[in-house]
Design a protein around this nucleic acid. Structure first.
Lengths: 353, 353
DNA sequence: GGCACTCGCCCTAAAACCAGA
DNA sequence: GTCTGGTTTTAGGGCGAGTGC
């Protein structure tokens, strides 16, 4: 069936122009209608084949599926979302790539997405502005939900989510948005970690404390540290704040600063394994022995923590479980019971402390 | 204007049901129509205010903008894409989170996106299946383009992209898809790196070679290594393959295996800085001095490479530039001249080799 | 500057079809 | 041949915005 552009002048007379115009706007992609035509069923049956397969007789269903496969049909999520008002897409916002826990977190999210037929898209944001921007992109895409890390979000971000009634969930920390979040008890972990150093007989402890924007996932730790130190007579705690960027060089610089300020420090608690590794490298450069001269502990059980010499004592948390539970909890309609919200943690004692 | 759900029983009698039905399907979100109403302009003017502002008188424009801000209007990208057939969203596919070059790559992409008014969504894929799945999600979302890393993609992935006529670009390596890709010359970098070890007088060199799925971004290196070694009389090259997972422990294991197999090895060229750091840690554990006993070089100039002791000699590449150029090249319509496709590299000599 | 139509799909309602009882 | 119950079709109206006239 050949067809050329209709002469605009003849438009009124010929039946063709409407047809031609329609064609010109079509994307050329395989549509559901094409699948239906090929399978010899109605549009509705084709639609139902994807949406509620149980409504079709199995042979009809098979016909549609075959046709879809043969044609290479990929559902237009946009059109579906627009029409139904429901999107299978979940937007996940990560603060940084540098935290290897997030890799496991993501695989938990992916597993849950596979289980519930959802699709995940990602974005990274390390500042309030980029966070709001990313969330706006998600909302513009009319995602079905948004998964956030930490409880520290720019007012703009939260307002956007709320005013558009986009379901979202905050993860990683407890207590998060009461009854909704998924995470572990960072304060308890800090209490345990500080206790470990104290029980080893160390009395002058330093805490490297992340601050800055979007650093709320560290915020619960400091009070727990201070309380634990205060509970032991003769113990002293030093707080050294660092910027929110997680890097080896920050760890090295922090270690240098702490040693300059308080040479008698015997243990350094780091907010991440990256910082801890950086601090360890700095000690190596100075010829300080770890843990004999000074103990170092990290946080997060990143892969590197098991590989440095000495290996790093750290806090292991179940990022995979957090991710998995987060997605399931995001949409109550899943029909599944909501998993427990506390995914726990574990102090992983290795050689550095 | 209060309104409650219409009583289903009364549906037939009341004039409300149609209205109620309509309402029930509406998202409740702020639409362009609402903005137009509030600004007292037609729907078209409101649309134009965003799409081609120059078509409006400035006071009309301002009225629309004010109304949009007051209402908290967020354009429905879905509807816009569906209607126009063009999407401002670009899907970026990353192989892994562990490569800190990708962070810079991403910021280049983001900068370009900001410059051209596009939006970026991300996905990670480390296997052919997850790659195809991610690309399918992008295509289902009818993204305007897809940015890929490396030239090694599952046939399914490429076929999907081609059959749906989705614009895409392969980055990172040269020569990529001739005339379209953006990247650096990995073979030349390997030649230079091998030369560095040879010039230092080392004659038994080992290459740790990534293989496995999706590892094409390493594939050009080995022949260059072999050629460089062959060109120097008395030099010998050992190839040690490792799986595609980029981890410290892989590096450590590879180093152990190489030492067992060829104790006389004097230099090890690693495919990434992570592997190199892992290899270095293994040497430390064995009391081998780097670089006196054995030289190690990495690849990628990840942050860790400057922090270990000794710091790692590595290949620095301009990931930011790759990302930036990739997005600009993806859509020729940008009106900008396409930047050069070779973003170059640099051998960063530090202490480990 | 505005009207009518379109993008691809969803959804409701009601009618049509197809067994078997 | 009518009734029944499940399956499929027909018809039409959206969803929110862009496009051609």
């Amino acid at each position: 069936m050949t067809e050329h552009k209709a002469d605009p002048g003849a438009a009124v007379l010929s039946p063709a122009p409407a047809e031609a115009k329609r064609r010109s706007r079509q994307s050329g992609r395989v549509t559901l209608a094409a699948v239906a035509r090929r399978a010899g069923v109605s549009l509705m049956s084709a639609s139902n084949a994807f949406r509620c397969p149980e409504k079709l007789r199995s042979d009809t269903l098979a016909r549609v599926q075959t046709a879809a496969r043969e044609l290479g049909y990929i559902p237009d999520v946009l059109a579906g979302t627009l029409a139904s008002g429901q999107s299978p897409v979940v937007g996940v916002l990560l603060p940084t790539m540098r935290n290897s826990s997030f890799e496991r977190y993501l695989s938990g999210l992916r597993r849950a997405a596979r289980e519930t037929g959802r699709r995940i898209i990602l974005s990274f944001a390390d500042s309030p502005e980029s966070e709001a921007e990313a969330v706006e992109t998600f909302i513009g895409l009319r995602v079905g939900g948004v998964v956030l890390i930490g409880g520290d979000h720019s007012p703009g971000t939260l307002q956007l989510l709320r005013q558009t009634a986009t379901p979202f969930i905050e993860t990683w920390l407890l207590p998060a948005d009461a009854g909704k979040g998924v995470g572990y008890d960072a304060a308890a972990a800090m209490t345990a970690m500080t206790g470990l150093h104290l029980q080893a007989g160390r009395r002058v402890l330093a805490l490297i404390d992340h601050d800055g924007a979007l650093a709320a996932r560290y915020r619960l730790r400091r009070p727990a540290f201070e309380a634990a130190v205060a509970a032991v007579p003769g113990a002293r705690g030093i707080i050294h704040p660092v910027g929110a960027t997680d890097s080896f060089s920050e760890g090295a610089a922090a270690m240098a600063a702490i040693l300059a300020q308080a040479p008698q420090v015997r243990a350094v608690i780091c907010p991440t394994d990256i910082i801890a590794a950086g601090a360890l490298f700095e000690c190596q450069r100075r010829g300080l022995r770890v843990p004999q001269d000074i103990a170092i502990s990290g946080w997060g059980n990143y892969e590197i923590s098991g590989q440095t010499l000495p290996a790093l004592t750290t806090v292991a948390l179940d990022a995979e479980a957090i991710g998995h539970a987060a997605l399931l909890r995001l949409m109550p309609g899943s029909g599944e019971t909501c998993p427990a919200q506390d995914t726990g943690f574990q102090i992983l004692r290795r050689d550095s402390a």
